[in-house]
Design a protein around this nucleic acid. Structure first.
Lengths: 218, 218, 218, 218
DNA sequence: TATGAATGAGAATTCATTCAT
DNA sequence: GATGAATGAATTCTCATTCAT
């Protein structure tokens, strides 16, 4: 079972173990099909112990979402984006994007289980949707807007379409790329990761039209 | 509750009712949290009746997937794509795409519940993933390849990147667009659908770079 | 285990069996210490069956209280009292009381388990107290008031003390008599029931003072 | 929460606190529904500490019963009755009874929680019934017999009925009076306590018959 | 001695599935 | 075929009790 490391969060040892185990089980079976008995076994604690840390099974999910959203909106979104925004002064868009994507995709790779838990819940649960929107999406969009303005001012990014829509497109491209790798990875022969990235970025940057003005790919 | 119409499939009346009800309940609660009792109530049959048509609850899901995949790969993928391929001789790519998307998005709108059921299962269930891959994805890619070759030959679509990747990009853009509308629809003020489509297509076609060669949008 | 017969209530067969079993178990162990598993076993049904008839264990208690209060306020209080009131025209108070007590005590004997359940709950549960007060006590007092007025008019019952207080005294005497028999029955050698009744009534009628005017007991 | 003071018993401080807390919780919820965790919280000790003083939860109940019975049979029964027996030489029965009742009822008022615990257990538990019988009832009856003989010799109390039965009647009257006050106190408008006592005693002494020989009440 | 985290047996409750009608 | 009452295995959750610190 894939395990995600929450040791950076300074939770009590058992709580951390329970959350990590729960992420694994929820990720594989979904919330309803997961049992507290299996979570306990995977966490290496007694079933009763779970309920000392989480009043109900639902509260375990809440715990995951809180930690997951924190993890994602912290490490995953805010920090690297700000880092890249600050250091991107003299790089071209392709380089920046590639750097960004590299970082992002590696990260998503490591947080895939928790991301899948969140995604499944987003599909089924209005409340979680709201939380994700408030805590992840709005912050990401805010960050992207700043980045977009900077790029647009330099003439590197189009300005005729709202940044939200551009952001959505980037997200869609990346999400599909990740989905393909994680869910159907064995079914597509892929080039090495670097070449894949170049193609992905190329599409994101220039679209699918055969444009003579398109600069040559790396 | 959203209801999907399976009357085109010539199933026995009760079986069809049960499937339609199950799609609704599975879509809202997920497979495990859905109860056969609620499905029965929504279908207007006795709980026992369900088990005359489906040996187990899992078999209901199988029934949905079979019908859903059939529905999607039939009405949703093959037929319209072929229609567009045959009639696209003298249209430019934007027109074709817009037509295609219009159709697709309307369709996805109507089959959203079943799509959500399939998507959730794809996330959790290797077996379903396999079925979806075999029945939907490969067929769609095969179709797209034909379309791509035609477009590339006319110089309307780039040829330097594999059609699978182009297809993935289109899919990612569309999926994100739909997800935004269906899951967070109340949170974004949108233009009217037509303008949204234009922007979406514009991004798909030309990417996010501020390219002087980009033709003016409608 | 003592069993009470609820067949006069026209409940569904299983519901009746469950209630009867629950009365037995609640009566012996109290509500909290009773388990649904034991109730099921005593009722001869599967544990799950209980929850088709009663949503929760608390609802079983509610069912008992409803049936019990109905039973008591119907058969136990209203009907016989009215019967005795109507037929008491030419009897003296001792005869009436004896008749009344005979009837009451036999009845209480048969409904002892349910009475014990109600009594225990009355001690612990404000809500039940309220229900008992509304449904049993007020009705009993109302009846007694009518009876008291009639007796007082004939000069057979004292009129210088509120009927509620007289009623309370009768109740207290009877309750203690029953409690002694049911809870400590093996510890006191008793005369035969008839003699016991005479003494009980004698005390109720004339008190404990050595009153020369006291008529000779039977 | 009502708290009973056990400081006269010279128990270790923590044991006393635990017993006092347990009386409160048992009295409100009954034995089974009470949790050791709540007892610990109310006692201001850790949950584990309870089990240093009492091997099991049942042993807490045993501790309460032992202390309670001791308390009742000591302070409540023996001492005051003896006091009254010794000092009653020249008082009439009404005065003696009133004095006795005043004392008793005040006392019962203060020990209501523990009395409720004992009563509930008496209803459910044969063992406790036995202990109460041996330690409280027989002693009380023995005392009352002495009192009764003295009164009967003076011609103040009837001699034609066994003292046990007279005692039972007094007890029943008092118990019902207390029950009404404690359990349904808010539902009956009462006179002031003194008048209530007079009526109660009047009924106990003279019964409910309209007896011309009955002396006028105070 | 006191603590309170951890335990796990046992309780209430749910629900897919069966089957007599 | 259709029904829905009955089932009981499985699940979540509680809580008395233990024990390392």
């Amino acid at each position: 079972m894939e395990k995600i490391d929450l040791s950076g969060l300074n939770l009590p040892e058992k709580e951390q173990k329970i959350l990590e185990a729960a992420i694994g089980v929820f990720s594989e079976k979904g919330f309803s099909a997961a049992t507290t008995s299996e979570i306990a076994k995977n966490a290496g604690v007694a079933e009763g112990t779970i309920f000392r840390y989480f009043k109900t099974k639902k509260d375990i999910m809440r715990g995951i979402l809180i930690q997951g959203i924190q993890l994602i909106s912290g490490k995953l979104v805010m920090e690297p984006v700000e880092r890249i925004l600050l250091s991107s002064e003299d790089k071209d868009l392709r380089t920046i994007l590639k750097e960004l994507l590299y970082d992002r995709i590696k990260l998503v790779d490591t947080v895939f289980p928790i991301a899948r838990v969140i995604l499944t819940e987003v599909l089924l649960n209005e409340e979680v949707r709201e939380a994700v929107y408030q805590n992840i999406i709005t912050r990401a969009i805010k960050d992207f807007r700043i980045f977009h303005r900077k790029m647009a001012e330099k003439g590197l990014m189009r300005d005729d379409i709202e940044p939200e829509i551009i952001f959505r497109s980037i997200l869609g491209n990346m999400a599909m790329f990740i989905a393909q790798r994680k869910l159907f990875g064995d079914k597509f022969k892929m080039d090495d990761l670097d070449k894949e990235f170049d193609k992905l970025i190329d599409i994101i940057l220039y679209g699918l039209v055969n444009n003579p003005a398109t600069p040559p790919k790396v």
